[in-house]
Design a protein around this nucleic acid. Structure first.
Lengths: 413, 413
DNA sequence: TTGTCGAGGACAAAGGTTTGTCCTCGGCTC
DNA sequence: GAGCCGAGGACAAACCTTTGTCCTCGACAA
């Protein structure tokens, strides 16, 4: 009795809903018998004709168990609370979709709460939903890292079943995350193989846990690969991306440190929103992508294929993340022993979606911001060169662009 | 007792939740007294010291009323079910945010259900949530129009409180919609004032109610303004937009009918996803925006300001829509007489967000697709003309672009 | 002195399910 | 014929609140 019936039995409007006692009366048995039969209690044996009659009557009356009464008795509501920061970033949408889907498969409803993003507040703010028995557990997708000073402190620990989605909580064993380091390495290996030596990562504020982990992974990976890395943090908005890119360009033009004022030749951007800003800034600085700067988005979205210059991206298994988080939470809810709790890392393979924003680094001259104001030498100006050697790819897709590996949103399953 | 307390009283892990009877026992009164005091029942008078002691004990024990038991008794759950098509289109995110916000203000929780987009299914599919007393009412944001053949038929009518959001349901009086005609007119008036005479609307499938209404409004408004209109329907995806734009261009090149094979000079696009496709197609056809084609997005999004050519848009009051829908639904839930039901049209002013994708129509020669394959005469190729007469605007924003009227996502309220 | 009245509260019945326990009865074994 | 056993169910106690009704007691009026 978890999934809704394909066609709910019609119920006369105005009449009260059918209850166990109504069926019991009609059949001529006790409600407990009806309950056991309808719930398939194996401990109960009934005569076949009674069994049959109970089911028939239930269908006739369009019986639906009162979830409230059932939950009250069972101490289990069958609902999950999903605490989510309603960012515009499409990643949450995909995550949410994965979670909703899985929860409904497993017979759970999901309530959504918008995160108030109030760091001063203990995460227990949402516990009231569980305390009021509205939900059995919490799916915490708020993105902020637990501030260091509260790390491990008492108030960070929730006494109710919960799971941190796409972030790490204050305690171990309740996190469901993706392999951010692998995503970063996918980017780095790709551009390193093409010969890039100076790379950048533009991402959100360090307070965001995924960002923190990506930056860490990038630093580590660049050290072993002998790449020079610049990490820039900014708001997860178009404006933030724009501003970070500006900083990157300025830094490139004013020599300081060992880098010697040289600009990175490849850049990864942590979110779609920021990507738009970065691209605008690059455009403003007359740095053509990918000739002067290779670009990789760490958010895959279908719109990337349709941009001015289609942007290569790393596709993360977001739906799987949501789905796995629901599974993990339900496991914690239904578990007898809480010892089984362990962090989950989504192993679903992530992939590089190759488009046109990555190329070899500018071979001859090093691009610097000061030289960038002059017309870029290698830029093919399409309208002026009709018989371009690199024709349609830049700005004139002749066939409909399409993401090679992005699954189209499936209508079913 | 609607909003969560700012700081929930800490409760020892492992101990059972505090109940009314616990407080009653501690204070030395009956549970009914505690209930009435805590609920502020004005019919009850208690001695001040008892009153005080009850509240103190409740706070001490971190009492939270069991929402299940309360709902069971009151026949009212305080939860709303939001049936939403989880499209990538950001409009749903904004709508959802508005609804969540308002619902929480009014003390309601919101459960989200993903729409199965199964037209064959009666809308009652989601009624099970109400039938099981999980929710008090339905917020139906599924976008499909009620198919004509089921219009008014019995199964389309829901016996449970519900409201159609951003669409019209089969019966009147339960719709909460925005003024789509006004949005269309905003676009038309703007481009008509600039001298455009042939306009186009690229939008989703006619089965989507908003699309239907927009198309209708466009036809009507164009008739009175003596504009020639082309309406194209396509999937609400980048690919759909691309394909529709291709159709538009083909139609422009093969003269048929009175239009004489001339292309529209201004085009509105119904959704952000489609917009990307349309822009890609225009780029592919060497039709510069706005020189050869003015473009207006009927979805406002901040990323529009950061595109290759920043796109003018119509900003719709989506958050207000969600908020008003919640209000309307709660009114229906709490109403004694269902006669008060009436359709709601959001009157929040919508506005044109002026960017750079709209200009006067190409004055001299008419642009046709056949001529468009030649290098567009008026296109300024920036890298080739460093001292361009139209400098930074096209592709080099010198300051960070920003939407003039788009409210930044507020942290509070 | 009796009756009235209001303050202050107790009692108990819902609300719909679940589930542990108990009962009855026919058939079987010894 | 007594005892046992299992099938087939009935009973009732929860689960936690809410709310209509009733009770008691002191103050006050007649």
């Amino acid at each position: 009795m978890t999934a809704p019936p394909p066609v709910p039995a019609p119920r006369k409007a105005g009449r009260r809903a059918s209850r166990l006692v109504d069926i019991a009366e009609a059949v001529g048995v006790h409600t407990s018998t009806v309950s056991r039969v309808l719930n398939g209690d194996p401990a109960q044996s009934v005569r076949p004709e009674i069994y049959e009659k109970i089911w028939r009557t239930a269908r006739q009356q369009g019986y639906r168990p009162n979830a409230l009464a059932r939950a009250l008795k069972r101490r289990h509501t069958g609902a999950l609370a999903f605490v989510i920061p309603l960012l515009r970033n499409p990643i949450w949408v995909r995550l949410q979709r994965g979670a909703l889907q899985r929860a409904s498969e497993r017979g759970y409803a999901v309530m959504i709460i918008e995160d108030e993003v109030d760091e001063a507040q203990p995460p227990a703010t949402y516990r009231y939903l569980v305390d009021e028995s509205r939900a059995d557990g919490l799916l915490l997708a708020t993105s902020l890292r637990i501030p260091a000073h509260t790390e491990g402190s008492a108030h960070g620990l929730l006494a109710v079943p919960h799971v941190y989605v796409n972030r790490r909580g204050p305690e171990r064993g309740n996190d469901v995350v993706m392999d951010e380091p692998a995503a970063v390495r996918l980017f780095l290996d790709h551009v390193a193989a093409l010969g890039h030596q100076r790379v950048a990562l533009i991402d959100g504020p360090v307070e965001i846990d995924t960002v923190h982990r990506r930056a860490l992974a990038a630093r580590r990976a660049c050290a072993t690969r002998d790449l020079h890395l610049t990490v820039l943090h900014a708001d997860v908005t178009e404006e933030g991306g724009w501003e970070a890119a500006q900083r990157l360009l300025r830094r490139g033009s004013t020599p300081d440190g060992v880098a010697g004022g040289t600009l990175p030749t490849a850049c990864a951007v942590g979110s779609l929103n920021q990507l738009f800003g970065v691209m605008a800034a690059l455009r403003g600085a007359r740095l053509p992508v990918p000739e002067a700067m290779s670009l990789v988005s760490l958010d895959e979205d279908e719109c990337l294929a349709f941009l001015d210059v289609p942007v290569t991206s790393v596709a993360m298994p977001l739906a799987e993340l949501g789905s796995a988080a629901v599974d993990a939470l339900i496991a914690r809810i239904e578990a007898q022993d809480p010892v089984t709790a362990a962090d989950v890392m989504i192993r679903e393979p992530m992939s590089l979606v190759h488009r046109d924003s990555v190329a070899r680094p500018p071979g001859a001259g090093l691009w610097t911001a000061s030289r960038a104001s002059a017309p870029p030498p290698r830029l093919t100006c399409l309208p002026c060169r009709t018989s371009s050697a690199q024709p349609a790819r830049r700005s004139a897709p002749s066939a409909c662009p399409r993401s090679p590996t992005t699954p189209r949103s499936p209508s079913k399953s």
